[in-house]
Simulated scan of single mutants.
Amino acid sequence: MSHTAHIPSHRKPRQRASKSALRAGVAGGVLSTIAVAGAAGPAQAEPVTQTIEMPTITSGFSTAVAASAQATQQVALDLETQADEDAAAEKAAKTAKKAHAEAVRKAEAKKKAEAAAKARAEAEAKERAERASRTSERTTLSASSGSSDSSGSSASAPSSSSNVSGSAASIVAFAKAQVGDAYVPGGTGPNSWDCSGLVQAAYRTAGIDLPRVSQSQSTFGTQVSLDNLQPGDILYWGSAGSAYHVAIYVGGGEFVGAQNSNTGTVQRSLDYDRPTGAVRVL
């Protein structure tokens, strides 16, 4: 017998075997319970082994967005097409309106041109008749003045004018023969005159070459009083040397002058438009 046989050991007794047994018992109890419950309970359905694939949300969203974008683009194209059609229709309407207005304008212009041509033809016919009458009158006056020169005595003039002879008679006759002609700025005849053009042409029949413009004609001869006028004197309106209008005194208190575009060449009383002064060239 060992001398240590009765010495108690201070090490704790091993518990592995008991714990293992306990654990085994617990596990066995649990398994037994599960087995009993399985035997006592209703039959369980077989586990589902088929795998179901759920649709991918991201993929469906992308398709919807693409469809929406396509629809938006189509709407934009439709709007653009409609806008182009509206613009084309508006342009066509404006073109048609402009063409209509142009047609109306041309029709009115044609109508006016025809009316003007008719009026011009009538005026020309009237003018030819008047000119023929004036030519006859001028021939009679010229013959009368020639007879006066050869006999050495002056011919008796109409009661509306003073006695006229020689160069004055020629000037007066020419001026009167142009009554009714048109007034045209710069006109020198034979059918249209301005004031100084008529005076210059009248004096040319007497062999006298006057300056062309009224300013120079108003100082060409000797200044005379309006109370001492003789047929053939040049009347002027404005200042001498800066006159703006001239005419020919034809006797009897009357003058002949190319007045303006409204009246043309007229024979009027001095009271109709009182002149400023007069010059005598003869």
Rank of each mutant, 00 (worst) to 15 (best):
Q70M: 10
A202E: 09
A93L: 11
A89Q: 11
Y244G: 14
R23E: 03
S136W: 01
V281T: 08
P231E: 02
V281G: 06
S225Q: 08
S147T: 06
T4C: 06
A168P: 01
G29P: 03
S145D: 12
A5P: 02
E85K: 04
A177C: 04
K97L: 15
K106P: 07
A99E: 14
A119E: 15
S162G: 08
P47I: 03
S151L: 04
R16I: 14
Y183F: 09
G197A: 14
I208E: 04
N262H: 12
K19Y: 15
A240S: 15
E127R: 07
P190M: 07
R120V: 06
V213W: 11
K118V: 13
E53Q: 10
A67M: 11
A240T: 09
T81I: 07
S144Y: 02
A119W: 08
K91L: 08
A168V: 01
S159C: 06
S159M: 05
L77Q: 13
R204Q: 14
A40E: 14
A107W: 08
K118S: 15
P42T: 15
A93I: 08
D78P: 05
T81A: 11
G221S: 01
A169W: 10
N191E: 03
G180E: 03
Q82R: 12
A132P: 04
A35H: 11
D181Y: 01
Q215N: 10
A27F: 00
A5F: 12
V104S: 03
S133R: 00
V104Y: 04
D194M: 12
F61I: 13
G277F: 01
S32P: 09
S162A: 04
I171Y: 00
D86G: 01
